[in-house]
Design a protein around this nucleic acid. Sequence first.
DNA 1: CACTTGACCTGTCCGC
DNA 2: TGCGGACAGGTCAAGT
Length: 289
Amino acid sequence: MPELPEVETIRRGLENRVVGATIASIDVRAPKIFEGKPEDVIGHEITGVERHGKLLVFLLTGGNVLTVHLKMTGQLIWQPAADSQAEPVMGGHPEESYLHNLPHKHTHVVLKLSDGSTIFFNDLRKFGRMSVVPASNFNDLAFVQKLGPEPLEADFTRKYLQEQLQKRPRTVVKSFLLDQANIAGLGNIYADESLFRAAILPNRLSGSLTTGESNNLFDAIQETLELALMYGGSSEKDYVNAIGDKGTYLKIANVYHRTGKDCNRCNAGVIERIKIGGRSTHFCPICQH
DNA sequence: CACTTGACCTGTCCGC
DNA sequence: TGCGGACAGGTCAAGT
């Protein structure tokens, strides 16, 4: 699920609701999902919510941080105190019961905050993890060390992308984009969408991209992610933001999950789906080259 | 080094 | 209606 736009949307939704609150209690309903000791974070204040690639990080007083990776189907849903009058109950979608009656059978961790609000960590497939990590060790985590630059920040440049492509010349460009060491936060949806926007076939070798194509790809990645952020991310199935709302990017997606449909750009091609690196990959065979 | 496969899990969808 | 297989946003380890 969650790629950069989804995780960032969750982060923004949490930041202005939980910063300043203290973690009052933690109910770990699925022990495998929670790594570390709950007592190391209970009683400590949340001072910030960061995102590093697809990893969410709650900054805390007391020397630890709480990291959350949602993997494919994880959700972090915040609900206000039961007696709160300031906030709506949920974002909507009452027809979908899995958003309601929290906690439910896919709720694995429940964080109660000092203001009476609650954060539910749900994950149908149980791939996701919540971990307590000493703040001083955070940057040494293998996962964090490997992360490449944030694609919407200043250290991601045209020059960097071109150089990095040439350092992995024999890697298929779709796989290059999915490698978090090259760019942090792209996943299967936005890799396909970015390649379409850049008009580059996903099975091209990274080393074969011209400077012009590399620059087009750079622009396409940033445009795609910014657009996805504006639409609140993509909800293929499970993704919801911090208050339970779905994202609507897939309404304007050009290739992802559009197999067999007419190409939005050239109107001549029909979107195809192939496998690259074991991941389904969507593209227009006519206007991507 | 680059690529593939399997593992981790549960659920949904499609064809027969 | 039931059954089996394919597939699903991510990452990691092991094998070729």
